[in-house]
Amino acid sequence: MLASLIAFFITSAARLLTGARALWLGSTAQAVQRIYYANHSSHGDFVLLWASLPAELRKRTRPVAGSDYWMKGALRSFLIQRVFNGVLVDRQRSEPSSNPLQAMLDALEQGDSLIVFPEGTRNMEDGLLPFKSGLYHMAKARPDVEVIPVWIANLNRVMPKGRALPLPLLCTLSFGAPLGLDEEEGKDAFLERARNALLALALEEV
């Protein structure tokens, strides 16, 4: 109850602050199991992406977050676990034997959609960092799940790193066409294609 009230408050605030205009350019807002992957420049990225989905999709869509950041402190862990229903991954690999992908694959197994940031960390420059390989492994393990690029424009200006007060600038989220993994395609080729598909959306904005 409290968690869903907070979720409602946060998504409303995010939409009010940024306008959060969702452009479905290559896909539509359907309740299909998906992996949304986006550029990462601000802590608000997944909140905004999550907020811009229609409510029925949002219920089954879970952000993937680094446990090193989100499990610090009671408030953060309450937010990520109860409010956002996030999938926590161990970015540091504290136990070498554990597979950091397992939590995500489990969530997909339950029928949930995911929000991932394949750059792995927040990018302070223009463009995109090289992608981590997790996206490829998930696409290979679950070819039935749509992989959809989402370019989030302007949020890095709304909440610049290290600043507390957000600026009320308008943000646009461009949802592209599903990628699909070719039979023969290797890891590097797929990641390169995914990265280019996301960059192409950046040019289409406005």
């Binding site: 610049p160 007060l165 600026l167 009320p168 308008l170």
Partner: peptide, 25 residues
């Protein structure tokens, strides 16, 4: 407010302009 937000959204500024934009809004 809405007009200023539209204007600033379309005009590229840099990270160091943050204090000026806070003052504006």
């Amino acid at each position: 407010f809405y007009a200023l937000r539209e204007f600033m959204t379309l005009t590229p500024t840099r990270r160091s302009d943050y204090p000026a934009l806070v003052a504006a809004f």
